[in-house]
Design a protein around this nucleic acid. Structure first.
Lengths: 191, 191
DNA sequence: GTCTATAGGGCGATAGAC
DNA sequence: GTCTATCGCCCTATAGAC
């Protein structure tokens, strides 16, 4: 038998999310979390930089996105590449986990501290994408713009999907948001 | 003579920004700020919800943006309306204050806590714009998308402008970012 | 693991403006 | 008198230092 129970990090995450759901983020202290997980306060802060971070600790999207960009064929136009990635993630990572994602978004919406950290995570993803594009030789401004558009597109689609109880798949929301964005930017344009 | 010196809020803001520039955000305590402004800690928290908030307290953009949307001719297409607003703000509010804005952005970049709050302020602006559009009868999804695109466009242009020491005006960066966004979304599209 | 600085909020007292 | 802003001391919890 191991000296410490395994998966300390995961036990902390699970305990934290349970408590956040039960009594809210503010009303849950780090002491409450570590008590339920059976470790000390110090251990919590060795795994997570702060109380908000534990809530987002499972997020694999930036890593997956970076891998997808790096692995894509060299001649893919930047947006097409991201679009394929969005569809893959929508079907494989988001759609099967709809209940947890909707629950998490509900907590984020009603807790300003979590909302801020969520926005930071979006900014992190934008930066990962920008760097990935630049490493593929894409011009710096274009890399930044594609990344910005992709993150905004994903975010808007996720909002619609989470608020929509008709069962419309995330991919359909992505399509709709993409079409709307293209329409918006075409106004007054030439061609 | 009044019992209290006037403009407590503004004195606190000025003292805070001075100290943030002198020794950094983390290294400045609320006690430092109130000492310089000549009030007590409790008074600080009556004016500002937290230490980050004092840094952004002068931001008038959401109010101006809401007023512009409300005052625009009823038949303006949503994006055209925002585009006019962006050009007006760029010339009237941003360009004349380049030094302060660049200095503020520098602080925001190197301080994660300020970065998070800055992203929250962008989200607030997005929401103000969305609401403004919806009040003009724009469809909810379209309102959300136009607002998202406009905020992302402004943010990307501001980044380029602040990093660019050749004196290129913000309006030119806005044009460039807009063109790049349109290009990105046209890839693979019909027409 | 314990200790401490700091953020941030609760509450009542106080002192001017009106 | 009412209203409003400040003060001053209370407290807890976070987060980092030792």
């Amino acid at each position: 038998m191991a000296r410490w129970a395994p998966d300390t990090r995961e036990r902390l995450r699970a305990a934290a999310v349970e408590l956040f759901v039960e009594r809210g983020f503010e009303a849950t202290t780090v002491s409450d979390i570590v008590e339920r997980a059976g470790v000390t306060r110090r251990t919590f802060f060795r795994h997570f930089a702060d109380k908000r971070e534990v809530f987002f600790s499972g997020d694999e999207i930036p890593r997956l996105a970076a891998a997808m960009i790096a692995a894509a064929p060299a001649d893919s136009p930047p947006f097409d590449l991201a679009w394929t990635g969005l569809r893959t993630l929508a079907a494989g990572r988001f759609e099967p986990r709809r209940p947890e994602i909707v629950a998490a978004r509900r907590l984020i919406e009603l807790e300003p501290a979590l909302r801020e950290r969520d926005l930071q995570k979006q900014a992190d993803l934008r930066e990962v994408l920008t760097d990935g594009y630049r490493e593929r030789g894409i011009d710096a401004l274009r890399a930044r713009i594609v990344a910005g558009v992709v993150v905004e597109l994903l975010q808007a689609a996720l909002e619609q999907w989470a608020a929509d109880d008709t069962g419309t798949p995330l991919i359909d929301h992505l399509e709709r948001v993409r079409a709307e964005m293209a329409l918006v930017l075409d106004v007054g344009g030439p061609r």
